[in-house]
């Protein structure tokens, strides 16, 4: 968040102005991911039934086991839902790989010097010290870091899950890797869940991020939020806006020129 002071009028103007942050595909993918995570995490936790691995209470495990008609079906359900999740996510990423994902990764995800100082300053903030947060791009450094955890974690979860689901196709000598894939699967999930605690809190409870929360429904954030929290991105957007206006104006000019009657032109000549 930027600590610059803005006039009330300016705030009101900016708050009313909407800037597009998320496309429909992005929004749908996010909420599909949320739903999948709810199902997969809850069934996954229910699968950790062995007393040595158990995280949830017996009642929770029994509930899910009964809900799905037995541990076997619970495992199968987890696998089936996991495969659906993996397919949809991979399909979406691949579909928009060149148009969306590559530019996204290049423009939004690379860490800058500002990001590094953001971490430093945010640490000061957490410690209650005096801090000055540098201007941030579309995603702040914390979000970027979580993004990396999510991307890495998703790939790990997907790959380990996929291999474990089809482990019976592996040659006999390689089947033992399942013993390592399970902890890895768990580790990746755990990593994301750790980040998710902040992600969910920030989005659902943190007042400053209210605009971001709603952007996951309608795709827009208000300009004030953008200006305060993602100044670099906001300025980019403004630049884009101006460039667009310029372009539109030029086009209008050209169009008007084209509309000028031939005779008039000749006359001018």
């Amino acid at each position: 968040m930027s600590d610059e002071i803005l006039s009330l009028a300016e705030r009101k103007r900016l708050r009313a102005k909407k800037i597009k942050k998320h496309g429909l595909a992005n929004i749908l993918t996010h909420w599909f991911n949320v739903a999948s995570w709810v199902i997969l995490l809850s069934t996954g936790l229910a699968l950790l039934a062995n007393p040595n691995l158990r995280i949830m209470p017996q009642g929770y495990i029994d509930f899910f086991s009964h809900l799905f008609g037995g541990v076997g079906q619970l495992v199968q359900a987890h696998k089936v839902f996991g495969l659906i999740w993996l397919f949809v996510i991979s399909y979406n990423v691949l579909l928009g790989f060149r148009r969306y994902f590559v530019p996204f990764a290049r423009k939004r995800m690379l860490l800058t010097s500002d990001d590094l100082s953001w971490f430093r300053e945010y640490g000061k903030k957490l410690l209650g010290l005096k801090y000055h947060l540098p201007p941030q791009d579309a995603y702040n450094a914390g979000q970027k870091a979580f993004g990396y955890v999510v991307i890495l974690g998703t790939v790990t979860i997907g790959l380990t899950g996929l291999i474990m689901t089809f482990a019976y196709l592996l040659p006999l000598e390689l089947r033992g890797i399942v013993q390592w894939l399970r902890p890895l699967h768990f580790l990746a999930v755990g990593g994301i869940v750790t980040g998710l605690v902040i992600h969910v809190y920030m989005a659902a409870f943190f007042p400053e991020e209210k605009s971001a929360f709603f952007s996951m429904f309608n795709g827009d954030v208000d300009a004030l939020y953008a200006r305060l929290h993602h100044k670099k991105w906001y300025e980019d957007k403004l630049k884009e806006e101006r460039a667009y206006e310029l372009k539109v104006r030029l086009e209008e000019l050209e169009a008007r020129e084209a509309e000028t009657p031939e005779t008039e032109k000749q006359a001018t000549a």
Partner: peptide, 30 residues
């Protein structure tokens, strides 16, 4: 049974036969 992470292996309460629920088994080999 103690080693099975997914409770695929269990001892049947009614007769004590130790069985493997093939659907629950994840093939980890533990």
């Amino acid at each position: 049974v103690a080693a099975c992470p997914s409770q695929a292996t269990y001892k049947r309460k009614a007769d004590g036969i130790v069985v493997i629920d093939q659907d629950a088994c994840i093939g980890c080999g533990l």
